[in-house]
Computed example of a mutant assay.
Amino acid sequence: MISYLKTKELTQQQLFELYEDVGWTAYTKDIEQLQQAVQHSLSVITAWKKNELVGLIRVIGDGLTIIYIQDILVKKEVQNQGIGFELMQQILLEYQTVRQKVLLTEEAPAIRHFYEKCGFTSADKGDTVAFVNLS
């Protein structure tokens, strides 16, 4: 059974294990910075299997006019069980009055399908344009 908890109080080890499991190693190169980023996020909802952190979604923004879904990740062993969808639904409910809900992710059919199922429209299919500066 998976339980969900709104918390920013996560150990470096818990974060390291989750982010490493999904291959987000750019974050784990500076685990202290990742922990601080999580603690400074607007909102963090976590998914737990017993005492193991298996999922997380975190949001940055002002919480009134815009939120940016910075991270949503679920450990490989429990993917495709609705955990990511539930994390997203909880965040969208928490910020239902916010007009702009934004995220940036890589392109892949399964990823596109997941976000469309969550109610998002790709910028290439809507009236918006996306820009990014990766320098």
Rank of each mutant, 00 (worst) to 15 (best):
L103P: 01
G82T: 03
I57C: 11
N51I: 01
T46Y: 03
Y19Q: 05
G82K: 03
I91Y: 08
I67G: 01
G82M: 05
L18I: 08
L64W: 10
L42V: 09
T46D: 14
F131D: 05
Y95S: 01
W24R: 12
F131C: 07
N133C: 12
S122H: 11
E32Q: 09
L56T: 00
V78W: 00
E52S: 10
I69W: 00
T121D: 15
R99Q: 13
K6T: 09
L15Y: 06
D71M: 03
Y115L: 12
V44W: 03
M88H: 12
A26V: 03
K76T: 14
K117G: 02
Q39V: 04
V54L: 07
K50F: 05
V59K: 00
R99T: 12
E17A: 09
S41M: 06
L104T: 13
E86G: 01
G23W: 05
E94F: 03
F85T: 11
P109W: 00
I60C: 05
I2V: 12
D62M: 02
E107P: 00
I2A: 03
V74Q: 04
I66W: 05
M88D: 06
S135D: 10
T28D: 10
T46W: 01
Y4E: 06
V102R: 10
V74W: 01
Q14E: 15
D21T: 02
V38H: 08
Q90V: 02
L87Q: 04
G55R: 01
I60T: 08
K117W: 05
E52G: 04
D71R: 01
T65H: 14
E106N: 12
T7A: 03
E116C: 07
V54R: 02
S43D: 05
L34N: 05
N133F: 10
S135Q: 08
I31V: 05
G119Q: 09
I45Y: 06
K101E: 00
E77M: 02
V78G: 00
T97H: 15
Y27Q: 12
E94T: 11
R112Y: 12
I2D: 03
L64A: 15
L92P: 00
T46C: 14
L34A: 06
Q14A: 12
T11M: 08
A123T: 13
L92M: 11
K101A: 12
E52I: 10
D62S: 04
Y95L: 11
V102T: 10
A37R: 13
W24D: 11
T65Y: 15
I57G: 01
I72R: 07
F114L: 06
V98T: 00
R99Y: 14
K49V: 09
Q35P: 06
Q90H: 08
L5M: 09
Q79K: 14
K101P: 00
K6F: 15
L87A: 07
Q12W: 09
V22I: 13
R99C: 06
Y19W: 09
V22Q: 03
V98E: 00
Q100R: 09
E77F: 14
E32N: 13
H40G: 11
T7E: 12
V132N: 14
V44P: 06
V59N: 03
V129M: 13
S3M: 09
V129F: 03
